[in-house]
């Protein structure tokens, strides 16, 4: 009984952390720029592919591949933001949704051509491939690393957003963009940096979470509903909201699938509908 509960909690936490790492950037960019980016998952997949390529083809260590994924995807995000996404700030929701779907489709086609349609696994360092014994229960140590990484990223974001000058500017612009511009915040640069940061973290999440959300060309479409759910439930422009939302959804989903497998993903959607109806702006939403 306790073993089952611990197992559910552990795997639920690991799943939740992957959801969080991938989704948190989406929430920040949506809150700041009001841009509904349905292609966010494609950036996570790109990060996954960077880690796969770096560890499998180039033979680089995992610990080098992860920062590489962040940097490569963040740069790609910055370029795309500068070239096209920028022109769609302030456009109506339908156009943003459609443009990001277009981006997603092109990414799917590109990944399929470049890496083939099959699932790809990065090479995990030997130190993380074993089991971790906790009393008489055993857990895969890689998943313990995923949990630690999720908490570390939450802490890093909290420091960045809450304690640095850039974070202060981001918070100011989320709360009141006109006012922030009026007192001299360069929102153009801020938007590019934030978009790069958000996509970069997603790339990191894609790489770290490849064990749980497997890297395939359609990654960005398959898990899109999950990422959007985390953001919508957690609230836009918040870093703690998505964390709690991911925890809720990760644990509820794993528990539901473990205890009542025939109901599948019912629980997730049920919980989401209930939360959104009770709080349309999400748990910690700055705005809806």
């Amino acid at each position: 009984m306790i073993t089952a509960a611990l197992t559910i909690l552990f795997h639920g936490l690991a799943f939740a952390m992957v959801l969080y790492i991938v989704s948190v950037g989406l929430g920040i960019t949506m809150g700041l720029m009001n841009f509904a980016n349905l292609a966010h998952g494609a950036f996570a997949a790109a990060g996954g592919y960077v880690v796969v390529m770096a560890t499998r083809s180039l033979g680089l260590p995992f610990w080098v591949a992860l920062p590489a994924a962040f940097i490569v995807v963040a740069l790609a995000g910055a370029v795309i933001e500068r070239l096209v996404v920028r022109t769609l700030y302030g456009a109506d929701e339908l156009r943003q949704v459609l443009f990001s779907i277009a981006l997603l489709f092109m990414a799917i086609a590109g990944f399929t051509v470049a890496f083939g349609p099959l699932q790809q696994q990065p090479e995990i360092p030997a130190g993380l491939s074993g089991q971790l014994a906790l009393g008489d229960v055993e857990f895969p140590s890689y998943r313990a690393f995923v949990i630690v990484a999720g908490v570390a990223i939450l802490a890093a974001l909290w420091l960045l957003i809450g304690r640095t000058r850039m974070g202060m500017r981001i918070r100011a612009a989320v709360d009141n963009r006109n006012m922030a511009e009026a007192i001299g915040v360069d929102t153009k640069l801020l938007f590019t940096l934030t978009f790069a940061l958000g996509t970069g973290i997603a790339g990191l999440g894609g790489g770290i979470g490849a064990d749980i959300l497997s890297i395939t060309p359609t990654y960005g479409q398959e898990y899109l509903v999950l990422f959007l759910i985390v953001v919508a439930v957690g609230g836009l422009g918040s870093i703690f909201g998505p964390f709690l939302a991911a925890l809720c959804i990760g644990v509820v989903d794993v528990a539901g699938k473990y205890l009542i497998p025939e109901f599948g993903a019912f629980f997730i959607y049920g919980v989401v509908i209930a939360i959104l109806l009770a709080k349309p702006a999400g748990l910690f939403g700055v705005r809806s």
């Binding site: 949506m30 509904a36 929701e93 949704v97 509903v225 959007l228 759910i229 953001v231 919508a232 836009l236 025939e262 109901f263 599948g264 993903a265 019912f266 959607y269 049920g270 989401v272 509908i273 959104l276 109806l277 349309p280 702006a281 999400g282 809806s288």
Partner: peptide, 25 residues
């Protein structure tokens, strides 16, 4: 229709996913 914007998108998506799951099961 009680929600707007992203919440509305999410609800339509969540309902559709729920019914997909039901039909699947």
């Amino acid at each position: 229709l009680r929600t707007k914007g992203l919440g509305q998108l999410m609800l339509t998506m969540a309902f559709a996913s729920l019914v997909y799951e039901i039909a699947n099961r």
